[in-house]
Amino acid sequence: MTMKTPSRRYIVCLKPVPDPSRFDKLRLDPETMLLRRGDVPQVVNPGDRHAIEAAVDLKKRFGGTIACLTMAPPDAREQLEEALAMGCDRACLLTDRAFAGADTLATARALAAAVRKLGRFDLILCGCYSADGSTGQVGPQLAELLGIPDLTHALSLRLQGRRLQARCGLQDGTAALEAGLPALVSLDPRANVPPLPPMRGISGALAKKIPAWSAADLGLAPAEVGLAGSPTRMLNVFTPAAGRKGEILQGSANEVAAQLLEKLRGEKILPARGGKGSS
């Protein structure tokens, strides 16, 4: 008699972000200093598409099911529908006014509660960072809250039994990492080319129900979520003033070269005339 391996369960976390191709139309609300998201249509965070594609690829190779999660306002159903069109099997929307103003930790806390509510899982897949906030913190924080290993910037994935092997990008190269399941992995944008959602996937997604879970549904107290549950406070948002001073030298080429030399010596960027090392 052989033991039947339970089917693998993948979870993809995604974030709706303002369409990056229209970032030029984005404005900050002068009072709240938050992005006025209504000005630009929301799309699935481009980095998260790589996570969806990685999950779809693992499902093709090893079987299993994919659930996708997002914590966002009710409109985010649209991005979940797109994830379903791309090959996810089910989607859950974490939505509650109490979630508003969440920093990365409060977001990870809500996602962790949703992951626990979904039950057994093998692998959580995320993008590396969002196109709007770009902190890259939610994935690792989620892994920490769940007490599972996390592998960031994965360029390729291999599943062997209960072991996940990943080649992960570093600043100056790559590292071969291995972790036991369950684990969390964030996908480097170079890992794959997310396919376009096929038309049959789009119409297939229409038939699927997307449940909405509130903080209470997740068993979270108001103090644990949203602004109340966020240790981070944004004090100000500003564009740093460019501090460069331009100066145009006048004269012939030789004169300009001489003036430049003098200025560089004056600023002590070059050693003074006759000093050590000068010619």
């Binding site: 376009l196 096929p198 038309m199 049959r200 996937g201 789009i202 119409s203 297939g204």
Partner: peptide, 23 residues
């Protein structure tokens, strides 16, 4: 065919996506 453009107005049971004429 792969992305489903050929079957936009064809019912799903015949391999289309049945997304209709606006789509």
């Amino acid at each position: 065919a792969e992305v489903g453009l050929l079957g936009l107005v064809t019912p799903r049971r015949y391999g289309g996506s049945e997304l209709g004429f606006l789509a």
